[in-house]
């Protein structure tokens, strides 16, 4: 079960992920990011404080946009990962190619 809530704060478009991302619902995450890019967003934040689980389907969505973010100068940041979920990012080495912050304050101020 995945719910995504969107809000705008200090010029950032924030997507709040609640629940679990897997192959059955990663398309919702994909569409949410696609919509922000199409709308011309230049700063996207992913709030993962309520993200309990993410499989490669969800991680693949982030991966597939990294080039677009670079090309379009979109500032893309992830914050609030639990230790368990962050470990999964680390297994893949994603922490080295994505901007990941411990919390919202750090993500907004860095």
């Amino acid at each position: 079960m995945l719910n995504i809530e969107g809000l705008e704060e200090n010029g950032y478009h924030i997507l709040i992920l609640v629940g679990e991302v897997d192959a059955s619902n990663s398309v919702i995450l994909d569409e949410s990011i696609q919509k922000l890019i199409a709308g011309g967003s230049l700063a996207i934040l992913i709030d993962c404080n309520e993200l309990a689980y993410i499989s490669s389907a969800g991680l693949g969505v982030f991966m597939s946009y990294l080039e677009d973010f670079q090309e379009k100068n979109i500032d893309f940041r992830i914050f609030g990962l639990s230790e368990k979920v962050f470990e999964v990012f680390k297994i893949l080495g994603l922490h080295q190619i994505m901007a990941i912050f411990p919390d919202k304050e750090t993500a907004l101020s860095s």
């Binding site: 990663s26 994909d30 499989s55 490669s56 389907a57 991680l59 693949g60 969505v61 991966m63 597939s64 946009y65 990294l66 080039e67 677009d68 999964v88 297994i91 893949l92 080495g93 994603l94 190619i97």
Partner: peptide, 22 residues
């Protein structure tokens, strides 16, 4: 290769890495 996956804007391929590493 992770950089190749990124460059190709692929959504797939990460699952196999996870299984083999875990």
């Amino acid at each position: 290769d992770l950089i190749k996956v990124k460059g190709e804007k692929r959504k797939g391929g990460l699952g196999i890495i996870l299984v083999k590493k875990i």
